[in-house]
Design a protein around this nucleic acid. Structure first.
Lengths: 213, 213
DNA sequence: CTAATTTAAAATGTATACATTTTTTGTCAA
DNA sequence: TTGACAAAAAATGTATACATTTTAAATTAG
């Protein structure tokens, strides 16, 4: 029998992999029966996923699996641009070598495992970014960034073509790290902006094609 | 017997008015008994207040009433500065006269009722700000701003002296509206920055004195 | 046939009861 | 006295049962 956090992961993954189609309305009963847990657990998980944008309200009964829109993706990109460079700037001052090392380890790990599932790769990439921001010592800012990532990751699971971008992304991550190591905060910030913009544009273009078809 | 949203409001208010002291650990049972509802309801409300920063995790049992810190207030101010001017900028283009009118009505209402409770005044002031940002058409940004306001409002309830600032604040709100009406977006943005900064500084100074004592 | 109203079904909210986990208390040996 | 260990108490998690609300279906008047 699934525990709460297991159901949380399972349902999230099932949404990401389109096992529940966008637009579907999921009721407590339905999910409780399908996953073999009580409605109480489903309620908790639904609530969590609702606040993270993995589910949307749907009238007074059920929750709806959200779709994908280029407009939304653009907004998420905009918010990343608004917050992440700021976080990096603040963090740069307090960053320790141990953290830079950790980040480097992460990059190495990603590079070594060529055959990671897209969503795993996405998760690890975010962990890398997250590490860079960590030492900004602004808990609320970090919380907002985590939320933002939740929303973005829903798209990344959808956009399988992320793979085509993986190499460019990895190279930029490495360069970012190098700039931080040598203390060139300004340049690092600019690169980060470029990095986020590129990823955003790629995603938006992908979605626009999708919508056109 | 209290319904869910009633308990939500009641508990929030009781926290704001220090009926539950900062640092207190509130368990489900305790609250369920005190407010005369079942634990299920308490659980839901606790979860909501947790995600809004009105309660903090406390180990594996109970939730803690958070305290106040100048550092946190400063961070919240920083985030407001990072997001609200952006929202205003985006909204300015699409703002309708009906919305400007609504905002004006709000200001008039606040001005007319001199004897509003501090938290009511705070809530109305936010509604004013919210109205200005509304037409930015960026749901995620607006959601972040609402969250941010939740956190800030906890402080505003604490800082009773907000009243001393009320007049200045009202004047600036009026001027902001005038600038928007005449389409001077740039100047409006600058004034907003000043407005948020002033409020933030006042709050931070208040908290620093408090901490010193 | 359409629209409105009633009736049945389904879904969610809430309370209670039980299971599991966590915390505290108390005991005993070093 | 102190520290580790065991037992009891308390708190939370989860399931089931009931109450209320909401949605869908069916019936009937126009």
């Amino acid at each position: 029998m699934l525990k709460k956090h297991q159901l949380y992961n399972q349902l999230k993954q099932d949404i990401q992999l389109q096992r529940w189609a966008a637009g579907s309305v999921l009721t407590q009963q339905q999910l409780a029966e399908y996953y073999g847990v009580s409605r109480i657990v489903v309620r908790d998980v639904q609530q969590a996923l609702l606040s993270e944008g993995w589910l949307e309200p749907h009238g007074k009964a059920g929750m709806q699996v959200p779709g994908f829109s280029a407009t939304e993706a653009q907004e998420l990109c905009l918010l990343r641009l608004q917050l992440e460079p700021q976080a990096l700037q603040l963090a740069a001052a307090n960053m320790s070598f141990s953290q830079l090392g950790q980040a480097e380890d992460l990059l190495a790990y990603i590079a070594a495992n060529k055959s990671l599932a897209p969503y795993q790769r996405g998760e690890l990439n975010w962990q890398f970014h997250r590490l860079l921001y960590q030492s900004c010592a602004k808990p609320h800012l970090l919380r907002l960034l985590d939320q933002l990532h939740q929303q973005v990751s829903r798209y990344l699971g959808y956009q399988e073509q992320a793979l085509t971008y993986a190499d460019t992304s990895a190279a930029e991550h490495a360069e970012l790290l190098a700039l931080l190591r040598r203390g060139d905060t300004g340049q690092a910030g600019k690169l980060l902006v470029q990095h986020i913009t590129e990823a955003g544009n790629l995603l938006v273009q992908f979605l626009q094609k999708q919508q056109g078809a």
